[in-house]
Amino acid sequence: MSAGIVHVDPANAEQARAWDGDEGAYWAEHAESFDRALHAYQRPFLDAAALQRGERVLDIGCGNGVTSRAAARLTVGSPVLGVDLSGPMLRVARRETEREGLDSVRYEQADAQTHPFPEAFFDVAISRAGSMFFADPVAAFRNIARALRPGGRLVLLVWQDLARNEWFRSVSALLAAGRELPTQQPDEPGPFSMADPDVVRQRLTAAGFGAPQLTGLERPMRLGRNAEEAYRFVSGMVWLFEDLDPAGRARVLDALRADIEAHLTEEGVLYGSAAWIVTAVRPSTPP
Rank of each mutant, 00 (worst) to 15 (best):
I5E: 13
H7P: 01
V8L: 03
D9F: 04
A11K: 03
A11F: 00
A13Y: 03
A13T: 14
Q15K: 02
A16H: 12
D20M: 04
G21Q: 13
Y26F: 12
W27I: 06
A28P: 10
E29N: 11
R36W: 09
A37C: 06
Y41G: 06
R43K: 11
A49V: 04
L51C: 04
L51E: 03
L51M: 14
R53Y: 00
G54V: 08
V57D: 10
L58W: 05
D59E: 11
D59K: 07
D59T: 06
G61N: 13
C62Q: 09
C62N: 07
C62L: 06
T67G: 03
S68C: 10
R73E: 15
V76N: 11
V76Y: 04
P79Y: 05
P79M: 07
V80R: 04
V80P: 05
G82V: 05
D84F: 11
M89Q: 15
L90H: 10
L90Q: 15
V92D: 01
R94Q: 15
E96D: 15
R99Y: 08
E100I: 10
S104H: 04
V105K: 09
E108H: 02
Q109M: 15
A110W: 07
A110M: 13
D111I: 09
A112M: 11
A120L: 00
A120F: 00
I126L: 11
R128L: 12
G130V: 10
F134G: 07
V138W: 01
F141C: 12
A147S: 15
L148G: 13
L148E: 14
R149D: 14
P150K: 13
G152E: 10
W159F: 06
W159Y: 01
Q160P: 01
Q160M: 12
L162T: 01
L162N: 00
W167Q: 11
R169H: 11
R169I: 02
R169E: 12
V171E: 01
S172E: 00
A177N: 15
R179C: 05
R179W: 06
L181V: 15
Q184K: 10
Q184N: 10
G190Q: 08
P191H: 01
S193I: 05
D198L: 14
R201H: 07
Q202S: 10
L204H: 09
A206S: 15
G208P: 14
F209L: 06
G210K: 00
G210N: 01
Q213T: 15
Q213Y: 01
T215Y: 00
P220W: 09
R222I: 14
L223Q: 08
G224S: 07
G224Q: 10
G224Y: 04
E228F: 03
A230P: 08
A230S: 14
A230C: 13
V234N: 05
G236H: 07
L240N: 11
F241T: 04
E242C: 07
D245H: 02
P246I: 13
R249G: 13
R251Q: 13
V252F: 04
L253P: 14
L253M: 11
L253Y: 11
A258V: 12
D259S: 12
E261V: 14
A262W: 03
T265M: 04
T265H: 03
E267H: 12
G268K: 05
G272N: 10
S273D: 08
W276N: 06
W276S: 08
I277T: 10
V278P: 04
R282C: 06
P283D: 05
